[in-house]
């Protein structure tokens, strides 16, 4: 596994030690997971839902939104009624 690439994709900063440790551990885990390759699954349909549920909708009705102060109450940084983040250069 290219741990640098995956960590970047996951937006997680890892220090050198972590990288080393994780590489070894994940290597072991991936080796264990390899056992799935023993299975003959070419004709098996993938199963992403375990229940046979289908067509679950809601009606197109407007329901009250949260008050703005509740929306922003947990924000690490807010400006006015907006969340704020480091400027994105465009």
């Amino acid at each position: 596994m290219d741990i640098e690439y995956v960590a970047k994709l996951a937006r997680i900063e890892l220090n050198k030690q972590e990288k080393k440790r994780l590489s070894t551990q994940l290597g072991d885990i991936l080796a264990y997971i390899e056992k799935l390759k023993e299975l003959n699954i070419s004709s098996v349909e993938p199963m992403s839902h375990v229940l046979p549920l289908k067509n679950v909708f809601r009606r197109d009705e407007v329901r009250p939104s949260l008050p703005q102060e509740k929306v922003l109450a947990n924000a690490p940084h807010a400006a006015g009624n907006n969340f704020s983040v480091p400027r994105i250069i465009e």
């Binding site: 596994m1 995956v6 994780l22 994940l26 799935l36 299975l39 699954i41 098996v44 993938p46 199963m47």
Partner: peptide, 25 residues
């Protein structure tokens, strides 16, 4: 990291898709 890897380009079929099939079994 493990989950990101299992879904990442080029590995989806080998890991995630295979796992969904094994789940059915």
């Amino acid at each position: 990291i493990l989950g990101t890897y299992a879904l990442s380009s080029g590995y989806y079929d080998a890991y995630y898709l295979r796992a969904l099939k094994a789940r059915r079994l």
